[in-house]
Design a protein around this nucleic acid. Structure first.
Length: 847
RNA sequence: GCCGGGGUGGCGAAAUUGGCAGACGCGCCAGACUUAGGAUCUGGUUCCGAAAGGAGUGCAGGUUCAAGUCCUGUCCCCGGCACCA
């Protein structure tokens, strides 16, 4: 019916927000020139602020995405205002399973789905007003991009890790006879994580509790021929070079534990009555005299050779039972130890006593040698196993309180001949030296980290630039890149482990005698180097040009924000690739990401993790529609500390929305017709002392808080600022100028709009706010000459004292003791002591 | 089990080096303006108590003139790893 029934917004964000977004786009406001370009200013320092680029899913953005993105955007805008050349790009990690599975269901080519999703994501991000330099947008599925992903793979293929120099080098420097045994990218027949449901193998990092990280399908162990990347040769450097980085300690530790370095010794054993030998890895060589049996992983190749005729059947049965189990089953059964005797004995290297050799699934194939010496007296797992199968237990470290309990602690060696009486650390060292002298063993460092399983049986990924001929692999020429996936009608997995690309028979046929590799790279490949491509996205000659790399990557990415879920995946892989590129001379830093921050997860309004099934997902589009992009940005930052997990609250959004409305009404008012016009209270007047103090205190607080990433308290400081001026009769323009600049990185649309409107009538508002210089505060304006300090009696505040800030202690004490309240509370007591912290507090101690 | 993070009002949270616990926001209460208010403005709001006063940062101790902050022990929540010899 009438106008009054229409929704009236407290300020017209719906009109000016899209207008400013268009303005920034048309004026290329946030495009950053590269070194060498005419409008590049080499005098400015650089700042590279990076978001973990998203996978453009069909669901669109959820409110978790803009959390980190808003934080980096505030930093980017703030750094620009402080005179930095800021690199702030965005792109798409667009290869991946969902698009492929959608293709399987609908026949729709993944490229079509991907393009649609990218358009959607980009539109959503632009509607939030992020200051990305969109001219640098990258997409991992773009042939112009994955050409270089494939190129980098070829560098890995053509490189080996030289232990003598502790770095990667061209394979041409390798002097051994089998170059394929040292390449950083190699083929191996390995037990892999095969996921029948997905029809593909997965990396260890993609398997969670025996199920696929994507989809949650069961994963089983199966030996298959796969491409591997030799990340293990970088284990040491991945740990050492992590140390100086400005990363959360928790993430560093997560990576360190994942790499899992342990120091110990390799000890050689002989199989009794046989020429067979094997080695075990132990971190407790000092307990060698306590080794009472040997355990071999069931899958180990030595098992056939050592199993006696009598034990053949039980061993076969056991191995069969283990092979049929998924990792999940194995984990669930972990509580109960199982295993069988092989019938063979090993000879103890020192005592030369025979000790039985068992197989058991508590020993893992992939770690150490896959064989252990069991010391049940001093290892919980061995203890359990020995108890269950009545194997002998020999204590060699003491003091032992009870023979009925495993003693896994350090202590003093006993029953160990030349080690007796030595504390564990010394015993370890002495044993290692002894073993080395006798040629029975040697000091060894072992890592939990395994080589990276790098091939997938999928369609929607980068094809390997490799061809096979006579059972041998070789790289294709660089000039043949990019190698694009062939068109297919059927994207389904073949179910046999043969990748879908195998269906493209013409594409596979490389020559009369050669065929193409049909595996594709995992999704992680593209994200291993995208931060480099942003520096020089249009370069057709190389993956990154020298000058761009040297300028933008100097000291690494300055600030990188993303979720913890990538702690051991993307962040480890990218560091590995970066180190290879560094060793080969293509980049100039050892590490890619100097400073890393993890944003905390945003929970639903019910305090639970957001999920479709719970129905508690908050859609940013709806927030923008109802409250505007600035409100969304501001709320995301006002919720609490960036790194903390925190629940979404709709009334919280309204709170910051009201704050923005107050800022709007500081400058604007409605006329008779209900149109917004400049407020009649605005005047070019001097600030009062009190106002000037508020302005400068806010500049200080907001500046320091932005640098400390304490955006929530920066916003509260601006709320205090706004409250201070809301009630005033006259509004000094200088205060408004200051507020708009401070608020701009947080609420760019509102501040630009007010700046422009004020500029039409008043001076001092030239250009856009984004172009303004960040203000400095003057400490002189912050000093108070009078302060109110609490006066305590026995630690309880009883009164207050208004004194000159620098009043000497003795005079402060005198004034405090003269207070009636102090007298009242010390009456009948003796004053023992008066603590005076000048300008801060007085505490009278009496009893 | 091991490693990491965290427990502060009704709620999200603040609190340099130990120095007035609860800034700011939400919610709630009251008032003003108003035909109206789920708009706006003003004031109040940790708890108990009419007040004086007392209690209070997961719990129990300790150090100190003074502890959310430091120390010892303990409980709970969240995240990661999980037979790595």
């Amino acid at each position: 019916m009438s106008i009054s029934n229409e929704k009236r917004n407290p300020f017209p964000y719906d009109q000016f927000e899209p207008r400013w977004q268009k303005f920034w786009e048309e004026n290329k406001t946030f495009e950053t020139p590269n070194p060498g370009s005419p409008d590049f200013d080499p005098a400015k320092p650089k700042y590279y602020v990076l978001d973990m680029f998203p996978y453009p899913s069909g669901e669109g953005l959820h409110v978790g995405h803009p959390e980190g993105y808003t934080a980096t955007d505030i930093i980017a805008r703030h750094k620009r205002m402080r005179g930095f050349n800021v690199l702030h790009p965005m792109g798409w990690d667009a290869f991946g399973l969902p698009a492929e599975q959608y293709a399987i269901k609908t026949g729709q080519h993944p490229r079509v789905t991907t393009e649609r999703n990218v358009t959607r994501f980009k539109g959503q991000l632009q509607r939030i007003g992020f200051s990305y330099d969109w001219s640098r947008e990258v997409n991992t599925t773009d042939p112009g991009y994955f050409k270089w992903t494939q190129w980098i793979f070829l560098q890995l293929y053509n490189a080996w890790f030289n232990p003598a120099t502790n770095r990667a080098e061209s394979v041409t420097t390798y002097t051994g006879n089998d170059v394929n045994s040292v390449r950083l990218a190699y083929v191996a027949e390995v037990p892999v994580n095969w996921c029948p449901e997905l029809g593909t193998v997965l990396a260890n990092e993609e398997v969670v509790d025996g199920r696929s990280e994507v989809g949650g399908f069961p994963v089983v162990r199966k030996p298959m021929r796969q491409w591997m990347l030799r990340i293990t040769s970088y284990a040491e450097r991945l740990i050492d070079e992590l140390e100086p980085l400005d990363w959360p300690e928790g993430i560093k530790l997560l990576q360190k534990n994942w790499i899992g370095k342990s120091e110990g010794a390799m000890v050689g054993f002989k199989v009794a009555h046989s020429a067979l030998r094997f080695a075990v890895f132990t971190t407790r060589p000092d307990t060698l005299f306590g080794a009472t049996y040997i355990v071999v992983a069931p899958e180990h190749s030595i098992v056939d050779a050592i199993t006696t005729a009598e034990q053949k059947q039980v061993v076969a049965d056991y191995r069969q039972a283990i092979a049929g189990k998924s990792d999940l089953d194995r984990t669930e059964l972990a509580k109960e130890k199982s295993g069988v005797f092989t019938g063979s004995y090993a000879t103890h290297p020192i005592t030369e006593e025979p000790i039985p050799i068992w197989i058991a699934d508590y020993v893992l194939t992939g770690y150490g040698t896959g064989i252990i010496m069991a010391v049940p007296a001093h290892d919980e797992r061995d203890w359990e196993f020995a108890k269950k199968f009545a194997l002998p237990i020999q204590f060699v470290v003491g003091p032992v309180e009870s023979e009925e309990k495993c003693f896994a602690d350090v202590g003093l060696a006993t029953n160990s001949r030349f080690l007796d009486g030595l504390p564990t650390a010394d015993a370890k060292a002495k044993m290692i030296i002894w073993l080395e002298d006798q040629g029975l063993g040697k000091r060894t460092i072992n890592y939990k980290l395994r080589d990276w399983l790098f091939s997938r049986q999928r369609y929607w990924g980068e094809p390997f630039p490799i061809v096979w001929e006579n059972g041998q692999h070789r790289p294709v020429a660089e000039s043949e890149l990019p190698l694009t996936p062939p068109p297919l009608d059927d994207f389904k997995p073949t179910g046999t482990g043969e990748p879908p690309l195998a269906r493209a028979t013409d594409w596979i046929r490389y020559s009369e005698t050669a065929t193409r590799e049909t595996n594709t790279m995992p999704q992680w490949a593209g994200s291993c180097w995208y931060y480099l491509r942003y520096c020089d996205p249009a370069n057709r000659e190389t993956f990154i040009g020298g000058p761009a790399e040297k300028y933008w990557m100097q000291g690494g990415v300055d600030f990188y924000v993303g979720g913890t879920e990538h702690a051991v995946l993307h962040l480890l892989y990218a560091r590995f690739w970066h180190k290879v590129l560094f060793d080969l001379g293509y980049v100039s830093t050892r590490e890619p990401f100097q400073k890393l921050v993890n944003q905390g997860m945003i929970l639903g309004t019910d305090g639970q993790k957001m999920s479709k099934s719970r129905g508690n997902v908050v859609n940013p589009d709806e927030i923008i529609l109802e409250y505007g992009a600035d409100s969304l940005r501001l709320y995301e930052m006002f919720m609490g500390p960036l790194e903390q997990v925190k629940p979404w609250s709709m009334s919280g959004v309204e709170g910051v929305h009201r704050f923005l409305a107050r800022v709007w009404r500081l400058a604007m008012e409605e006329n008779q017709e209900g149109a917004w016009v400049l407020s009649s209270l605005l005047e070019e007047i001097e600030l009062t002392n009190r106002q000037r103090k508020v302005v400068h205190a806010s500049i200080k607080k907001v500046t320091e808080d932005i640098e400390a990433l304490a955006f929530n308290t920066a916003i509260s400081a601006m709320m205090v600022f706004t409250n201070e001026f809301t009630g005033t009769e006259k509004r000094p323009l200088a205060a408004l100028r200051g507020l708009l600049v401070l608020l701009n990185p947080f609420a760019p649309h509102l501040t630009e709009e007010l700046w422009a409107r004020l500029g039409e009538q008043f001076g001092g508002f030239s250009g856009t706010v984004s172009e303004q210089t960040w203000p400095d505060w003057n400490s002189a304006f912050l000093i108070e000459d009078e302060v109110e300090i609490p006066v305590q009696v026995n630690g309880k505040v009883r009164d207050r004292l208004l004194i000159k800030k620098d009043l000497p202690a003795d005079e402060t004490e005198k004034l405090a003791l003269a207070l009636p309240k102090v007298f009242e509370h010390t009456e009948g007591k003796t004053i023992r002591k008066v603590v005076v912290i000048p300008g801060k507090l007085v505490n009278v101690v009496a009893n």
